[in-house]
Design a protein around this nucleic acid. Structure first.
Length: 559
RNA sequence: GCGUCUGUAGCUCGAUGGAUAGAGUAUCGGCCUCCGAAGCCGAGGGUCGUGGGUUCGAAUCCCGCCAGACGCACCA
């Protein structure tokens, strides 16, 4: 079923094509900021004026006449005004705005979703190496990635959540060495404790568990310690499994589940790294210099050519990264999104260059990157320095335990990814309305309370087909317009990889509801009026719940 | 020095090239005998870093400058 907006846009497109063939493809409505400018506005007359060599207001009049003659506009539109340089300001009939209530109550949790497009998207995020607990920065990535995945699902994508990590590099050697030394009783600061070792107390916990021959279970592996400190490989495998298990607990506390854990070591084991290098060499995209193998990445817009194979024979880190992305594409993911800190931005050009040079049909600009700034943490008015080596941490789990999963998620999604962000622990701990999640959740709980006041079971299914014509007041119409914006908001948020759009939308929707609640009593004696208002309020509750679910935040019935 | 990103209300931030730049917070003033006041209504508060350009129209696009963050290894 087409929404009112879709019907009106379709009719507009027909008229625009009559004026200028092809113009219909750009048919669009804007939502004016000022109520006096109508419910929707169209700027097509101004945009077409030059090409058609016709004054925009004259074009506007032609459009106005043509549109008002169509069935769709006669059914739904009250008036079209021409204003300013050539805006078409459209004022909807109340019945047009009321339709969204029926749509929401009919489609429920699927309101605003697009049909399945039969394409797969892979979103790679968190991807923390198993050398320590997840910290607040990983939390930002977890919140962003999960919400972005949910957004793509609403747009008809089949979404795959992937966690990539290095289980065999230099950092793992450092972890293994640190654990062995701790197991042997050597501590940070002692003679024989290396400068490069990890100093955190959690290393001692791993060492103790290793000596106790503990068994650890993680999402992607399980391992039992031998207790033999001399067995380097056994210590390594145990330490990795132990920290993966710790990270899984962090992710569980955040209510986040990955579909797959992908190991960098597997790219070597399966020969993908070697195959990728050979492909690049065969394509003539490499050269030897100073005993190293270089990629001609400058051919694809990179600053400088990059070393692929060092003179000691090892590959640099971006080579397996290129192999990994070739595999993503071969696995059928026509779209890939990587979520990383801005400190990784330098790698984007060379990975994309490698993918183009491999020449296996990967489109330019693959993969997408969402870069987020690092999170600073302030506690008690002072910045908490995060240092893996010194072991000073605010872990993600600390933060969730101090506050709540809902507060941390909403907090971390309350601004653009590239905005520098200071996480004020005291503010997040405070259970007051400084944290906007309470404002939105309160609106939801308040609606549930009204529904309970109507019927003990609050069964919204009863409201899906009530007569909506009593919904004509200003606050009711404002609320319905806000509900109708939800589907377009989802599309924009997904295409822009911008979950904060959802956060701001929910804030606005909650505000519209609170205003409505204050202006109009819902449980009145007049039965038809009461049912119509209950339907509006139930639809609002549904959209609040849907939006919060996208962010991974619960919608409580009581607070 | 080179590259990427960011400069908007006292503070924290938002704004598919559209009309009078918006929220929250803080400050001040109103609203609970009535569905949840974790709420609502109102007031004050702006050189959109800065100087040019593009066009019917620029916070938004282009160029210069200033300031900040992050990168600039045969590290990951």
């Amino acid at each position: 079923m087409l929404s009112v907006k879709q019907e009106l846009l379709a009719a507009l497109a027909v008229e625009l094509d009559k004026l200028s063939p092809g113009a219909g493809a750009r048919a669009a409505f804007e939502s004016p900021k000022v109520a006096a400018h109508g419910d929707w506005a169209c700027t097509a007359a101004m945009q077409l004026a030059k090409a058609l060599k016709t004054p925009p207001r004259q074009l506007g009049e032609q459009l106005q006449t043509a549109l008002l003659a169509t069935n769709a506009y006669q059914q739904w539109v009250d008036a079209i005004d021409i204003a300013g340089p050539g805006f078409l300001n459209i004022r909807l009939k109340p019945a047009a705005k009321q339709q969204v209530v029926r749509e929401v109550l009919g489609e429920r949790e699927r309101f605003g979703w697009q049909p399945d497009r039969g394409e797969k998207i892979l979103v790679e995020f968190v991807s923390a190496n198993p050398t320590g607990p997840l910290h607040v920065g990983h939390g930002r990535q977890a919140a962003l990635g999960d919400a972005i995945c949910n957004l793509y699902a609403t747009q008809g994508w089949q979404v795959h959540r992937e966690f990539y990590y290095n289980d065999a590099g230099v950092q793992i050697d450092t972890l293994t060495q640190s654990t062995r030394l701790r197991a042997q009783g050597v501590k940070p600061g002692d003679a024989g404790w290396p400068e490069a070792a990890y100093n955190g107390d959690y290393i001692q916990d791993i060492a103790d568990a290793f000596l106790a021959r503990a068994t650890v279970q993680a999402d992607d592996r399980a391992f039992t310690a031998s207790g033999d400190v001399g067995d380097y490989d056994n210590v390594r495998q145990f330490a990795v499994a132990y920290l993966r298990n710790e990270q899984d607990k962090d992710l569980q506390a955040f209510a986040l589940k990955f579909d797959e854990y992908y190991l960098e070591s597997s790219l070597y084991a399966n020969g993908y790294v070697e195959a990728t290098v050979q492909r690049l060499v065969a394509n003539g995209k490499t050269y030897e210099k100073d005993g190293a193998l270089w990629l001609r990445s400058t051919d694809y817009g990179d600053d400088k050519d990059r070393v692929m194979r060092k003179s000691d024979g090892h590959y640099t880190y971006f080579v397996p990264d290129v192999a990994y992305h070739v595999q993503k594409f071969k696995r059928g993911y026509t779209k890939a999104v990587n979520i990383q800190g801005t400190d990784h931005h330098g790698t984007i050009a060379r990975v994309r260059a490698g993918l183009q040079a491999a020449d296996v049909g990967i489109p330019q600009g693959y993969p997408d990157y969402v870069l987020h700034t690092m999170v600073r943490v302030v506690k008690g008015g002072e910045e908490v320095k995060i240092s893996k080596r010194a072991g000073s941490y605010v872990t993600l789990r600390d933060l969730i335990e101090w506050t709540s999963k809902d507060a941390v998620r909403f907090f971390l999604l309350s601004r653009k990814p590239d905005t520098e962000y200071t996480f004020d622990v005291d503010l997040a701990i405070a259970q007051n309305n400084d944290n906007p999640v309470y404002y939105v959740q309160y609106a939801h709980a308040r609606i549930c309370s009204v529904l309970r006041g109507w019927r003990d079971d609050g069964d919204e299914a009863q409201l899906a087909s009530v007569d909506l014509s009593p919904l004509t007041s200003e606050p009711a119409q404002a609320l319905m317009l806000q509900l109708a914006k939800y589907p377009d908001m989802l599309t924009a948020a997904a295409t822009g990889n911008a979950p904060h759009d959802v956060t701001f939308y929910l804030r606005d929707l909650a505000a519209s509801y609170h205003s409505y609640y204050d202006a109009e009593r819902i449980l009145v004696d007049d039965e038809p009026v009461k049912l119509a208002r209950l339907a509006l309020v139930a639809a609002t509750r549904q959209v609040l719940e849907n939006g919060l679910a996208l962010l991974g935040v619960s919608a409580p019935q009581r607070m």
